[in-house]
């Protein structure tokens, strides 16, 4: 085989179902021997959030605190893009996932890390939403649009979810 192919995914959405689709494709592509990058921006950043409260070195402004409280803290706390039913939807979908032996989102993210999928956080939107590095997973990278394009221009599969 020649040089490794590349897959890049922009995860813009912070919905459980959409993030699940993104991570299934990422894991599939990694199994296809692709070099895989997921670029998390806007609401998609929440997939990289730790689920516990973190002591922050930099104090948050009022708006940043509001954003922090209103956004899901970590993949497992995300809502559904359809049929969320004020939080009942995710419970139902997780039940169905279990019943069908599918892999829940937090484990898909772990699996992606094991398969060396490159997880990137967009620093500009981190700033907008007031997310600090300490709130996100340790083993990720930080970049902007040029960092994404650097990967995407050689991409064989480029998706925006």
């Amino acid at each position: 085989m020649t040089e490794a192919k590349k897959t890049t995914i922009v995860l813009f959405s912070g919905d459980y179902d959409k993030a699940m689709a993104a991570y299934i494709i990422a894991n599939g592509a990694a199994a296809y021997d692709h070099e895989v990058t997921i670029f998390h921006t806007f609401w998609g950043l929440n997939a990289l959030r730790k689920d516990e409260e973190v002591l922050l070195p930099k104090k948050k402004s009022f708006m940043e605190k509001m954003f922090g409280k209103m956004m899901p803290r970590g993949a497992d706390n995300m809502g559904l893009s359809r049929m969320n039913f004020a939080g009942m939807g995710p419970k139902m979908i997780k039940d169905v996932i279990k019943k069908h032996n599918a892999v829940p989102l937090p484990q898909l993210i772990e699996l992606a890390k094991e398969q060396d999928v490159k997880l990137v956080a967009c620093t500009m939107t981190m700033d907008l939403l007031g997310l600090q590095k300490e709130e996100l997973f340790e083993d990720i990278e930080y970049a902007g649009v040029a960092g994404y394009l650097g990967d995407a221009q050689d991409g064989n599969v480029n998706l925006f979810i």
Partner: peptide, 11 residues
């Protein structure tokens, strides 16, 4: 096992 596990495991 459901998608994507069969190919991930195979790989």
């Amino acid at each position: 096992l459901a998608c994507p596990m069969p190919i991930v495991k195979t790989k």
